[in-house]
């Protein structure tokens, strides 16, 4: 979702229309996702006529942690890596936040949240640094680190416990003034906008895309490949921390056992049009991808189908999307 800007040199005299067409072509995947989402929402309304504002709010709450996890995954995948420790990082940050905020003042809660965000940055940076220093593949390192962070989470809390500051709960629960706009959605958009958009527009953001797209060309363009990779993983850690905090905020406790977020985030990223080869895509597509995955789950429930079939369909969607993606890539390379 690269923003279109600047004068478009055009000789045919219809710059606006052409720009729109070019934009639509470049964001074709995201646009079709949005269309798919609209169809799914309509379908939901058909099978469950009472689906309305409360449903949307419930959807937003259940989507929030996963959407942030998907954004986290998207950042490092764009940088040419993959992070299998996102679920564990979420568990760790969630239990740290919950255990420290329990029975404390509201003001102390603010300090805790800030500290947890810094913790996320640090553990993400550790992931990246280990990858850069040891030159062990991203998959192996983050797989191993997922043990470490999950173990650390268990050291903090053995069982789901802790608490959340009231302001934090209020931040994500309920509607934002108007019934149809849930707070969770507003929080998600604000958080992503505040962190991702400035990053993306900065040289650092460009460098993350550059190392994911073509490492050698990036090096020759003067990008510091190693440090950029660490920054990408630190950003992933930051978003994982936000996802962990949102878990605590929506449930009121911290759970030391990692949820299915790592795998779901990979699925959402692939579905959201981010190339696993790196360098392509954004964070908007994966967020739509999450909405689609969760809506499918909800619809299964509305149809009083076995919720486990939702897992099956999510798996099949993941497989189908990656197969489709590599088929396109393969055909392109044949030409």
């Amino acid at each position: 979702m690269s923003a279109v800007a600047g004068p478009i040199v055009d000789t045919r005299g219809r710059p606006v229309v052409d720009a729109l067409v070019a934009w639509a072509r470049r964001n074709g995947w995201t646009l079709s996702l949005i269309a798919l989402l609209a169809v799914l929402l309509a379908f939901t309304k058909v099978i469950n006529p009472s689906y309305g504002a409360p449903g949307i709010q419930g959807l937003a709450i259940s989507v929030l942690p996963l959407a942030l996890a998907a954004v986290a995954q998207a950042v490092c995948v764009i940088g040419g890596g993959i992070d299998l420790s996102i679920g564990s990082m979420m568990a760790l940050t969630s239990v740290v936040a919950a255990s420290q905020m329990k029975d404390q003042s509201e003001e102390f809660g603010v300090a805790v949240i800030l500290a947890v965000l810094i913790l996320g940055l640090i553990i993400g940076a550790v992931n990246g640094a280990v990858i850069v220093i040891t030159r062990v593949p991203d998959i192996v390192v983050t797989l191993a680190m997922s043990f470490v962070w999950a173990g650390a989470a268990l050291l903090v809390l053995k069982t789901p416990a802790g608490g959340s500051a009231q302001w934090l709960k209020d931040l994500v629960l309920g509607p934002a003034g108007f019934d149809w706009i849930p707070k969770a959605a507003v929080v998600l958009i604000v958080v992503v906008a505040v962190i991702w958009i400035p990053l993306r527009r900065s040289t650092v953001g460009l460098s993350i895309y550059a190392i994911g797209s073509d490492r050698l060309a990036a090096f020759r363009s003067g990008v510091a490949v190693g440090p950029t990779k660490v920054i990408a993983y630190a950003t992933t850690g930051l978003f994982a921390a936000l996802a962990g905090i949102s878990l605590t905020a929506s449930t009121g406790i911290g759970n030391p056992v990692p949820g299915p977020y790592t795998l779901m985030s990979v699925a959402a990223v692939v579905l959201g049009g981010v190339s696993l080869a790196g360098g392509r895509g954004g964070v908007f597509g994966p967020m739509i991808g999450v909405l689609i995955l969760v809506l499918i789950q909800n619809d299964m429930a509305f149809l009083s189908l076995d919720p486990n079939l939702a897992l099956v369909s999510q798996g099949l969607i993941l497989i189908g999307v990656v197969m489709f993606g590599s088929l396109i890539q393969w055909r392109r390379s044949r030409r």
Partner: peptide, 21 residues
Amino acid sequence: VYQEPALIPDLDVRSNLRLTK
């Protein structure tokens, strides 16, 4: 100027210029 262009394939021309200042 190398034999293989050192431009990032997934960035537009303007971003490639910014990357190299």
